[in-house]
Design a protein around this nucleic acid. Sequence first.
RNA 1: CGGGGUGUAGUUCAGAUGGCUAGAACGCUACGUUCGGGACGUAGAGGUCGCUCGUUCAAGUCGAGUCACCCCGACCA
Length: 488
Amino acid sequence: MSNKGITPRNQSYSQWYLDIIDRAELAENSSVRGCMVIKPYGYAIWENIQKELDRRIKGLGVSNAYFPLFIPLSFFSKEASHVKGFAKECAVVTHYRLKEAEDGSGVVVDPSAKLEEELIVRPTSETIMYDTFSRWITSWRDLPLKINQWANIVRWEKRTRPFLRTTEFLWQEGHTVHSNHEESEKQVLEALKMYTQFAKEVLALETYGGKKSESEKFAGAVDTYGVEALMQDGKALQFGTSHDLGQNFAKVFNIKYTDKEGKVDYAWQTSWGVSTRMMGAVIMSHSDDLGLVLPPVIAPIKVVIIPIYKDSSKEKVLEFAKDIESKISAIVEGVKIDDREYESVGYKFNEWEKKGVPIRVEIGEKDLDRNGVTIVRRDTNEKSEISINSIGSEINMLLDSIQSNLLSRSSTILQKNTHTISSYDEFKKQLKGEKGFLKAYWCGSKECEDGIKYDTKATTRCLSGEGKGNCIYCEKESTKEWVFAIPY
RNA sequence: CGGGGUGUAGUUCAGAUGGCUAGAACGCUACGUUCGGGACGUAGAGGUCGCUCGUUCAAGUCGAGUCACCCCGACCA
């Protein structure tokens, strides 16, 4: 198996992510591909991400709920551009029963069990949720309605990549319904802000967020906003979106309410989501040649203690190590002592480095003698010796500083790799070389956008700001500056 | 769907011009010696060579078909 294509720096990466995911070993002759198995260590990272994100989502006044995996074809086909956007990547359920094959070779689909109406495995849940919403909402008193769902979804993409584009993925999708456009617009921006803050504070990632161009919009949205992160190879990764759906879905799903004046009107909606792709963003952004580097907030193991001893000192060192463990655990969550006897010290160092554990505490005879420990921080690989007085709070502070160091590193990288560009030659040259984010004016025409994409593979990622300049492609005057990049 | 490539041990791969009982490294198991940066020794377990048909005295090796997977495009979070 080759893992080319997901490396932050060419090779070395392939083995790092294998601690987190595995290829789905599907049955022989299965045409299912591009699914991934998330291993326990990887899932623990996801759970930490979920926990932090869920708290923030609830902070927006949103409640969790769950809707069906299957969407009747008729629901799905109601919003024209939505169908058009997703039609080519849907898994369809056509039958509900199997039977034994006549030649005894196993089971086959029972043709008599054909569904009256096909079911779509959700590629996103707008349609199935909004059908329900139309029955929940009748009055202004029912609004705003704010629902979030944690779920798996399926998009049958032609080409998959571990983490970045898997056939099935886990995500969170927020859906809100409002009585007017000002309020729903505000919600869209609030969600966007929540995501960019989340990226900063939890994932230690600096990102660009902003409005998407017409061609990059979500299928069925009036406007789409996106959060874009920069990977080490200079490509951009969109890891979150927030959509202003206007009344597009309300009109086809008949989501109407009576306002305070007794007038009936269609509601205004938003939807927004982030997925397991975030984990890909974290891995690809922070990893180095030694393996993963996890931001402490999402690291399942934040501190690993490695006792180092000879037979003669074994008991003393282990006892000291356990004492240190309980001292740190009193203040810090996620402390692990690696006292496996059957692995060598070097192996352990390597293993936890590879897994991105933020702090390693080494405890040996030398440390015992001076009543201290040796610690190594994963972000810089700096080694230092600290005394055991107030070790818990010191480690806690160090975790904070690792978290903020990763963020400032990410900010610096983003700044360094963002270039304001005014000539198309320069634009092309940059994208052939180091890539990164390019800020340039664009007239807004599809011809220019397509031309740029054809020449360079770069697309508009999001609106950068307003000003005055000339379209990088056709040189017509424009007031809008966009962020361009080659996307994943 | 187009272009390219690959199927041999758990994994990564070697097995020119067909030839004896199919190999290596890593991993795995047991025992011993080790342990401040991926330890070492000894002994072991592990394979219908993707599948089918054909050519041949003889097929992992040649031919045809088939299935699966990977990479590069188009499409996308």
